[in-house]
């Protein structure tokens, strides 16, 4: 989504239970919700909104597997190929002694990889400024937003009607 190019019509609700009913209503009315913004994760919202489950954990598994293999194979290569040294008469390839570091690298790769992926796919990062619709969304307001770039007056009136019918406490527009 390009920044500064979207006309947004949004309604603010005072409670997450009213919001959930409103989102259900919007889906029934076949309204095209752009996004829903809430001050905390509202459980039960994702299925109503039709959001598919996040695949972040799959990415996490892949990163972890890479870390695991990298750690174990690297230590194996060092101690059997690159520079074999006898420590206390133990075999060069002493797999049990490699386990702790292999485990730590699995966790490290999975965690760092997932966190970086999370910020990248959410379009977030240090110093990133994403436009917000209202300052109270991170406080106590629950927001449903519609993109009204191509909407005619009838469609906008219909959305406004929807907001007043579902109990929005405020309705505003903003370009983001």
């Amino acid at each position: 989504m390009k920044k500064g190019a979207n006309e947004v019509l949004f309604g603010l609700y005072d409670d997450e239970e009213i919001l959930l009913k409103a989102v259900k209503q919007a889906k029934n009315d076949h309204l095209d919700i752009m996004d829903v913004y809430t001050p905390f994760p509202v459980h039960g919202l994702d299925p109503i909104l039709g959001l598919s489950e996040s695949r972040l954990h799959v990415a996490g598994f892949i990163y972890g597997a890479i870390g695991c293999l990298f750690g174990f194979l690297f230590m194996t290569w060092v101690f059997t190929r690159d520079w074999p040294i006898i420590f206390g008469g133990k075999p060069y390839f002493s797999a049990p002694a490699f386990i702790p570091i292999t485990f730590e690298l699995t966790v490290l790769f999975a965690a760092v990889g997932m966190v970086v992926t999370f910020y990248v796919i959410c379009g977030m990062g240090p110093g990133t400024i994403n436009p917000t619709l209202d300052d109270r969304i991170t406080d106590d307001k629950f927001c449903i937003a519609f993109n009204t770039n191509d909407a005619n007056q009838d469609a906008i009136d219909r959305l406004k009607g929807f907001f007043s019918a579902t109990g929005a406490s405020e309705v505003n527009t903003k370009t983001i």
């Binding site: 809430t38 994702d46 972040l56 954990h57 965690a111 990133t128």
Partner: peptide, 30 residues
């Protein structure tokens, strides 16, 4: 970091928290 509170971001945030918790649990014991 440019947080907006979008529903999809919350979903990913919760998923991330849960998996990080799952990773941190054996980690702290280790």
């Amino acid at each position: 970091f440019g947080w907006t509170g979008s529903a999809k971001h919350w979903q990913r945030w919760e998923s991330l928290s849960l998996v990080l918790a799952g990773l941190a649990t054996p980690l702290v014991l280790s």
